[in-house]
Nucleic acid binder design. Sequence first.
DNA 1: GAAACCGGTTTCCGATAGGATACCTTTTCT
DNA 2: AGAAAAGGTATCCTATCGGAAACCGGTTTC
Lengths: 128, 128
Amino acid sequence: MEKDTTIAEEVLCKSRILAIKDTSDILCGKWKIFILGTLLVTGKMRFMELLHTIDGIGKKMLSKELHDLELNGLIHRTEIKTKPITVEYQLSKQGKTLSKLIEEMITWGSQYRKDLLNLHEKKMNTEI
Amino acid sequence: MEKDTTIAEEVLCKSRILAIKDTSDILCGKWKIFILGTLLVTGKMRFMELLHTIDGIGKKMLSKELHDLELNGLIHRTEIKTKPITVEYQLSKQGKTLSKLIEEMITWGSQYRKDLLNLHEKKMNTEI
DNA sequence: GAAACCGGTTTCCGATAGGATACCTTTTCT
DNA sequence: AGAAAAGGTATCCTATCGGAAACCGGTTTC
């Protein structure tokens, strides 16, 4: 009886770890999460717009990360036959499911920063 | 009037991007999220337990990542004066606030894998 | 004809992340 | 005496990550 539950727990645990691994594999690298976040708030963007909006990224990295994200089905790439050609990127249906995760990262990051500041203030007060 | 809103929006946007950056900086690397996830489900663990539980990690990495996490206030390290000495690691109050984010990663990763399988099945069916 | 714009790709190079291995200290077991 | 176990460090090495810069093809404007 007890052995059953531990085995069941272990299987559950492994699948949870696998899920974490999947997620972090897909969001790995320095830029993907920012690209996704940017597309999430703007809806649609062109290559050059992304390049200028995402602070510090270079053409090579942007191009590579967009490829990865497209391969993993998180964004759509649309060529528009203007002259010169323009290309639009947007989140896919699958990509949009990341919004909760991204929002949670924003929430957590903001709170963490706030907590740090509070800690710092308190420390300053006790020092005076 | 319109300019005000765009400026306000831009400030908001920057702070959201900063929050994402904070979060991903703190969770960066190949192992931190697994260490946190493991501590989240088990409560408390010793160095060697973590080493054996987290598949594939080595001593050096475990040690380094634990240091980082402690520096950022996400975990507590407790030396217990047994012989030989044992050390317990556990999530701090701050660290526990990551549970929602980790749960969301698990949820998303599981769903993503499910969707992939469905896609694959459908494809197989149309191919027959 | 030159330059500029879009959306990239290619090449080169340096930094760093991360893995394997050996080593260290203290104490207990055999 | 020798080994083993806990919790690490130190050293070395390499694969990958990611940045800078040049280049490319098509088109349009000056």
